[in-house]
Amino acid sequence: MGKKSQPEEPVRLSAIDEDILTCLGRRELYGLEILDELNLGRPSELGFGSLYPALNRLEKKGLIVWRWGDEQEVTGGARRKYYKMTGLGAITLKEVRDYRVSLAARAAEGSSILEGA
């Protein structure tokens, strides 16, 4: 009677999605803070045009959540949105990082074989 459990579709992350999740870590940051963190030492600077679509994407995937902050004087009385990573976000990020580590290990193995030959 019950629905057949379908295999869960893996959550895809783009490079900027991954960067944002890494920035958030266990912290709660607002839009501009995330942008500052991302642009620190980045060869090509990111702007609002890349940040907000990525945040929207992550939110839709359930990887981040947000809450309204208080009204600030520097923002002209407007409220900031504070973003936080969810459990799913942390798991997805860990999976991507593990994959990168394994990829690097395989690449290193391959290069050592080539050097040996």
Binding site: Y30, G31, L32, L35, F48, Y52, W68, Q72, V74, T75, G76, A78, R79, R80, K81
Partner: peptide, 22 residues
């Protein structure tokens, strides 16, 4: 001018925009 921008943008984006200008 600021009120027109304020009306058109979502509040959080307006906040970031204003802070950057500030």
């Amino acid at each position: 001018a600021a009120s027109i921008i304020y009306r058109l943008l979502p509040e959080d984006r307006y906040a970031d925009f204003q802070e950057r200008l500030h």
